[in-house]
Simulated scan of single mutants.
Amino acid sequence: MKKVAIFGGSFDPIHTDHVNIIKTCHYKLGFDEVWVLPAYVNPFKTISSSSVTQRLEMIEIAIKGLDFVRVETFEIRKTERSYTYDTVCHFLKKYPNINFSFIMGSDQLDTFEKWDHFSDLIKIIDFKIFLRTDVINEDIVKKYNLETFEFDNNHLSSTKIRNLIDIKLQIKEVNDYINNSLMYVYERIESKMDQDRYYHSLNVGQEALLLAKLNNYNLNKALLAGTLHDIAKRWSFEDTKQIIESYDKSLMLEPKPVLHSFAGAFHLKRDWLFDDQDIINAVFKHTVADKEMSVLDMIVFCADKISVERNYPDVERLRALVRSDLKLGFIELLKNQYEVSIAKNDDKTIGEKLLIAYNHWVKGNK
């Protein structure tokens, strides 16, 4: 009789430890197949951070090449919360000639007896417990004579991944998918800045998207760079200084209000593991520009200055100019920024990078 392990969970997102459990089921425990069963909404959770399509696509990326794995959509396609008892009954009835076991992590043992129809569930299917935590509920293990198993454990969790913890241990292709889809923005950005700045970031992303359409540029890159441009804006000075100095100490000579752009670029590279240099450069240059400005650099620089919530004098004219001619609009906005900086300070304290950009694009284009 074929042996199948049912591995249920939110998989929001799927990560390296999930895949290591899957591999252990097949290669060490002798299961012929592992059926990955993403839940629509875990009964012990109140929200899912990603869409059904996104979770399924991430799973397919993670299990690529594992021909013994099958994705079952019985739960995720439902329009209501899923319960393990109903799912198990469904599979036992539909596949009477398969010997099923249910896979769960040891971190779920504390709530195990609270599962729906638990007293019936424990009698109709065998549970295999994988040791995800250092300390487990031994009383539950002994009470129900549960088998426990070790695996190549990185002590990852989906919560950690959503919050940029231990990203280097995540499956690279899944992490790239998450980054390129702007997933988990709320956890990664909103919680680290005030609401006005968060909405500004979203608005800049939308303005960048519009400018990309008008300039026949890659829409997704523009949306990503625009939305993420201010990710380090509300960091403490010490955190900002630490990450900048780990890459380029000379940047600390620039004015304090522009440091977040450098920190944000380095944050994307170091902590998000972004490897798209175009996006990193656009975030780096969005405050004071540079002699070398790509289309994306100009898009993000301008989108930041003319996003929908901006209401300073002459902004409507500048919006119209940028949307009709990106380069001319960029030069005008750079000129305005220089003049405002001079009015507040002087040409010796506004920062070398702004002076270089101004001399190149404004003076050089007269």
Rank of each mutant, 00 (worst) to 15 (best):
F127V: 13
N179Q: 02
Y177T: 10
Y177M: 09
S158K: 12
F130Y: 10
F151S: 10
V174Y: 03
I167H: 01
D166W: 01
I125A: 06
I189G: 01
S101P: 00
D107V: 14
K123L: 11
L156E: 05
L146A: 04
T133C: 10
S181M: 13
I167L: 11
E150D: 08
K160P: 00
D120P: 00
N145E: 06
F112E: 04
D166T: 07
Q108K: 13
V174C: 03
N163P: 01
D176E: 06
S181D: 05
N175R: 15
F130R: 12
S101G: 12
E150Y: 09
E187F: 06
I167P: 01
D166C: 06
L121N: 05
D139G: 01
D166A: 04
I165Y: 02
K172P: 02
L121Q: 09
Y184N: 08
D107A: 06
I124M: 15
H117P: 00
D134T: 04
D139S: 07
I165P: 00
E147N: 10
L131H: 06
N180E: 12
E187T: 10
L182I: 12
T148Y: 06
V185Y: 15
F130P: 00
F118Q: 07
Q170C: 08
F149P: 00
I161A: 03
N180M: 07
I124Q: 14
